[in-house]
Amino acid sequence: MTAEQIIQQILFFISAALTLGSAVMVVATRKLIQAALWLIVSLFGVAVLYALLDASFLVVVQVVVYIGAIAILFIFAVMLTQRDQRDKGPQLNKSWVLAALVGLATFGGLTFLVSSWTGFGAAAAPIPAGTVDMVADLGTALVSVDQYVLPFEVASVLLLAALIGAIYVAYNRK
């Protein structure tokens, strides 16, 4: 194993620990603002994982969409609700033990399922020769008629619908 591979593995462990550790903090912290900030750390860890997976476009989109828009939206929403109302009392409901069991069972089941699959320990497939710019390939795939132009357009309609819906729902009628 070369030094580069070892460094990749170390990076993976650091970002995995970051992602999972802060994800646990998201669901366990009492203060909601801190949960939102931990969520940002977790999303950032996922961005590093995308970088390790050579998906450069997704790394940047993860930061722009999740950290720049979704996390900020969460922080705004938390701040718009009253502090003593949102942070008082228990933050977990009565059946949290059951929820933890369900979570553990899901993790065990998923791990068992994928580990019985033959491609479980597969190594990364080589990037095909002649790939100059993967972002350009992705862009072409998104708009070419025989590939993904329909899902792409449907996603844009969905975003428009969400925009209108969010404005309508949150609009304060005087």
């Binding site: 992602t19 999972l20 994800a23 646990v24 998201v26 669901v27 009392g89 228990p90 933050q91 977990l92 409901n93 059946s95 949290w96 059951l98 929820a99 933890a100 369900v102 979570g103 553990l104 899901t106 993790f107 998923l110």
Partner: peptide, 13 residues
């Protein structure tokens, strides 16, 4: 990560 998220969905008030 999925299981942690699931726990959050089920257990948070």
């Amino acid at each position: 990560l999925f299981s942690i998220g699931l726990f959050g969905v089920l257990a948070r008030r």
